[in-house]
Design a protein around this nucleic acid. Sequence first.
DNA 1: GTCTATAAAGTGATAGAC
DNA 2: GTCTATCACTTTATAGAC
Lengths: 204, 204
Amino acid sequence: MNAPGSTRDRILGAAELLFAQRGFDGASLRQLTATAGVNLAAVNYHFGSKEKLVEEVFRRRLDALNANRMAALAQLGSEHPATLEEVLTAYIRPALELSHDGNGALFMRVLARAFAEHDDTLRRFLSENYGHVMRQFTAEFARLLPQLSKPELYWRIDLVTGALTHAMSGFGMIQRKDDVSEQAHREQTMQHLIRFAAAGLSHP
Amino acid sequence: MNAPGSTRDRILGAAELLFAQRGFDGASLRQLTATAGVNLAAVNYHFGSKEKLVEEVFRRRLDALNANRMAALAQLGSEHPATLEEVLTAYIRPALELSHDGNGALFMRVLARAFAEHDDTLRRFLSENYGHVMRQFTAEFARLLPQLSKPELYWRIDLVTGALTHAMSGFGMIQRKDDVSEQAHREQTMQHLIRFAAAGLSHP
DNA sequence: GTCTATAAAGTGATAGAC
DNA sequence: GTCTATCACTTTATAGAC
């Protein structure tokens, strides 16, 4: 159904690239199929419409991303009560790993666009398919920050989400120095993100 | 040149609305001129092209917004050395006031889109015309947070910018309660934003 | 300044041959 | 599954009358 190098897969790859660069409206099916090296009619044959193609671009990445987040969160509970840093790590590390894989970084920019779009159809799709993840993490944050009122908590989570989305979609800006390994650099970046998020969530 | 109710002004108003709702590519000149109640050809007569119209939508708001920020910052230095909270107030209050004026809130969503677009032409326009404001504020932050390395500071400012842009473009989400005046609500919101930004910038 | 009419190109989608 | 050709529209932009 989704073999690497297949027409279907090449379309998804080109869509991720061009949606990141030019947006959903800005990228035409002609540019897209030319980039993928496939026939124009192939998009409608394989996906039905441009809108369904957009959904599939999200589904391909978000299924794995959010499954990784849920798995990381589930693993925490087994030993001891999780700390705020640990819960944030479960949320952020999968996104950071995705954004450091070449094509995954493009997808984070597509995701940032989707946030800025405020498109109701797309928001409903994201909420219906991945809303349970945010609800689960929100419940954990509420347990760890009982001093915050619900509106205050939601509001801080929203600010942190904005910061993280902005950061993840801008990678390349934080340059890795030559004497730091890729792995070490990723850990450093994540520690910065987690401490920033923790400070924003828990300040008095 | 820009009298309220003039054709030119109505086009700018409709552009702000439709760019916020549908994006720069998604909003066509036909929808736009129909919304403004003017002739299709008027856009090219008054602005030259759609791209120039986009620039003018930004210029109209950002000239005032950034002048207000610079004025607020200049006023701080006169009496005593400014605190982090005061500098953040000088940066945030003008944006918050804009986002609480009905049409200004739409503009903040246009601005959030522009950030997500990563469009080089638009970024250069913003940098050339308003880059001095960010440089001035960055210098103030550097003075107030000498323990941070330059990369670390830039990076935190970027995260704070992401959070603020996300927040400002989403207003309507933080609902004002009936027993709180509009003025008091705005002050509360600003105190929340400033404390969040201060925590994110200055955490150890 | 504002209008109509239209040019020139681009759009998503599909029918039908292979 | 993949191709060409094409339909039915929409897009920005402009020429030229008023």
